[in-house]
């Protein structure tokens, strides 16, 4: 994988992993990066598979957080993670 793309994938990974789902919002630039990047990556790349697994868990967590505490922030994060997840799903399907 190109180094620049690898760094971008790392940025997405770190943002998804590090934010507090109740207090911070996933940035637009992170979502946009995910929309653009995933389709360019090798589907067999171990990093992409790991990121997909992490994203799946984080999305479930965001749903629980939103159900427990429905605010603009938690809704934004849940929607963002679903959107990123759909993108990733399509990456593996196509």
């Amino acid at each position: 994988m190109d180094v620049t793309l690898m760094r971008l994938a790392l940025c997405i990974d770190k943002e998804i992993s590090s934010i507090d789902l109740e207090k911070e919002t996933i940035s637009e630039v992170c979502v946009e990066s995910a929309l653009m990047l995933f389709d360019k990556l090798n589907k067999r790349d171990e990093k992409l598979v790991k990121l997909a697994n992490k994203l799946h868990l984080r999305c479930s967590e965001a749903k629980r957080v939103f159900n427990r505490n429905p605010t603009e922030i938690t809704e934004h994060n849940y929607n963002s993670l679903i959107l990123i997840g759909l993108t990733l799903e399509m990456t593996f399907l196509l």
Binding site: D2, T4, L5, R7, L8, L10, C11, K14, E15, S18, I19, E24, S27, V29, C30, E32, S33, M36, L37, K40
Partner: peptide, 26 residues
């Protein structure tokens, strides 16, 4: 380096660097 810095949230600039590359090649 960035990769080993596990606690820091990525900056807008770091995302944009990758995005610019993607836009330039797309």
């Amino acid at each position: 380096t960035f990769i080993a810095d596990e606690l820091r949230r990525p900056t807008q600039k770091e995302f944009e660097e990758g995005l610019e590359f993607l836009i330039a090649t797309n």
